[in-house]
Simulated scan of single mutants.
Amino acid sequence: MTDRDDLDMLAAEFVLGTLEARERAAVAVRRQSEPDLDEMITAWEQRLSALADEVTPVTPDPELYQRIAQHIDALETRQASVGTDSHDQSNVVSLHKRLRRWQWSTALTSAAAMVLVAVLIFQPAPEQGPQSFVAVFQQNDQQPAFMLSVDLNNRQMQIRPVTAEPMQGKSYQMWIKADSLGPNPRSLGVLNDNFELERAALRDYDPELLKEATFGISVEPEGGSPTGQPTGPAIHGYLYPVADGASEPSH
């Protein structure tokens, strides 16, 4: 490893919190006068800061680290009592380095695992194809008066007149009825002079509810029902999926 690699590892250990208190204090002082070190610490903080928002802090089990530290302390005590030769000293130094590398590797592996979890959790779900449905509004065996098309992916609707014609002093009003909405139908709006209804009129309704609902169009006084409920004759329709071989209503 180059000196710059060692410095980058030191910066990473500082950010990850694996340095001892004395070493951490020394690095904090050094970064004030060493622009390269300060830049590396800032870079590691930016890389890892987002992880703190995605995971719950967990206190690691200290037993393994304690056993390693106790073993090193025992070697140092033995060296102090019987004298230190160069071979023993190198072993202790090697163990210290291995302990430091173990701390670093464990922290880095944990960080990588958190990144992987974040990717798996927050990656966007596969986009589904359009879910198109149509409803036909007709009474008995007469020609359809209206046709309604609905895209359940974005809950947008479009209504098209077939045989329906404008009526002087009257308005057509659309309704929706479902068990989960209570006993009374709810208004989806009044069709304008071009037989148009707001495309986002279904935005507050769950797609599964829409597939099971009954839709109605009633003839009301101009401007819509004054009571909030249908007051004139109504024709009803149900959503049918637009798919090859789909011949049954969705409920």
Rank of each mutant, 00 (worst) to 15 (best):
R4I: 15
L7H: 00
D8P: 04
M9G: 02
L10G: 01
E13C: 03
T18C: 01
L19M: 04
L19H: 01
L19P: 08
E20T: 12
A21Y: 06
A25W: 08
A25N: 12
A26M: 15
V27Y: 05
V27H: 04
V27L: 10
V29P: 03
S33A: 11
S33I: 13
P35M: 04
D38T: 05
M40L: 08
M40Q: 05
M40S: 01
A43L: 06
E45M: 05
Q46T: 04
Q46F: 05
Q46W: 02
L48N: 01
V58S: 14
P60Q: 10
E63F: 12
Q66N: 10
I68K: 00
D73V: 07
R78E: 12
Q79D: 09
V82R: 00
G83A: 08
G83K: 10
D85W: 05
S86Q: 14
S90I: 15
V92L: 11
S94G: 14
K97L: 13
K97G: 13
R100Q: 14
R101I: 07
Q103F: 06
A107R: 09
A107L: 07
A112E: 09
A112C: 05
A113N: 15
V115G: 07
V117N: 10
A118G: 04
V119T: 13
L120I: 04
I121F: 08
I121T: 03
A125D: 04
A125L: 10
P126W: 02
G129H: 13
Q131V: 14
S132N: 15
A135P: 10
V136K: 06
F137D: 00
Q138S: 14
N140M: 15
Q142C: 13
Q142P: 01
P144H: 05
A145R: 09
F146I: 05
F146L: 13
M147G: 07
L148F: 05
S149N: 12
V150N: 09
R155T: 14
Q156C: 10
I159V: 14
R160S: 12
R160G: 04
P161S: 11
V162D: 08
T163K: 14
A164T: 02
A164F: 02
M167R: 11
G169F: 05
S171I: 07
W175T: 08
W175E: 15
W175R: 03
I176F: 01
K177A: 09
S180T: 04
G182K: 06
G182S: 06
P183Q: 14
P183I: 12
P185C: 11
S187G: 11
L188K: 03
G189T: 14
D193V: 15
F195Q: 11
F195C: 07
F195R: 11
E196R: 05
L197T: 12
E198H: 09
A200S: 15
A200M: 13
L202W: 15
P207H: 02
P207S: 02
L209M: 10
L209P: 12
K211V: 15
K211E: 13
A213C: 11
F215Y: 03
I217G: 01
S218D: 07
V219F: 00
E220L: 00
E220N: 01
E220C: 04
E222R: 02
P226G: 06
P230F: 11
P230S: 04
P230K: 05
T231M: 03
G232C: 02
A234Y: 01
H236A: 01
H236E: 15
Y238N: 11
Y240T: 10
V242S: 09
E248I: 12
P249D: 08
P249A: 08
P249S: 03
P249L: 09
S250K: 13
H251L: 15
